[in-house]
Design a protein around this nucleic acid. Sequence first.
DNA 1: ATGACGATGCACT
DNA 2: GTGCATCGTCATG
Length: 190
Amino acid sequence: MRSPPDFSLPPVPLARSLIGAVLTVDGVGGRIVETEAYDRDDPASHSFGGPSARNAAMFGPPGRAYVYRIYGLHWCLNVVGGPEPGGAVLIRALEPLHGLERMAERRGVADPRSLCSGPGKLCQALAVTRDHDGLALTEPPFELLGATGAAPLAAGPRIGVSKAADRRWRFGLAGSPWVSRPFPSARMPG
DNA sequence: ATGACGATGCACT
DNA sequence: GTGCATCGTCATG
């Protein structure tokens, strides 16, 4: 049995616990295999400068969606965390499980590898837009079920982030071929 | 009113 | 590996 994620967790533990969870929108979605944590005291976070019209959902109750537009054309989906306001987890990649055909139509590509392997891609595949900003992830059209067990985790620096680049707050399902980019693997000298 | 810039994806070399 | 599309948001005048 899958139980819901504990949304009251701070962004980093929430980001780790969401690996392996299953997210769908109107029945289309899959297993979360890549996340990034952002918190209030984080120069890279949209909440860093305090509440605004755009980031209002980040300062609302945990367990809701924060959706924003990036580079004028892509949408990105976050899970709002807790217990302090201003924390969220960016969903960066899914392993497609449900509604593959619908995803392919929306994405305009056939290769399953490129359906949900990036934050903008998965929003297009699941038809997530600003309309979903602030909606509860535990209610339709969303469904978000927690991981069944402890997933083997990979970690690395966040992607596209110039500030606080030292924080290894990007998490992934170790060895998964569905992530947006490979994780740096430990390399033996010699 | 205006300008800088971005938690990206895609085409191309 | 590099270049670029494209526009909402925020800081500034």
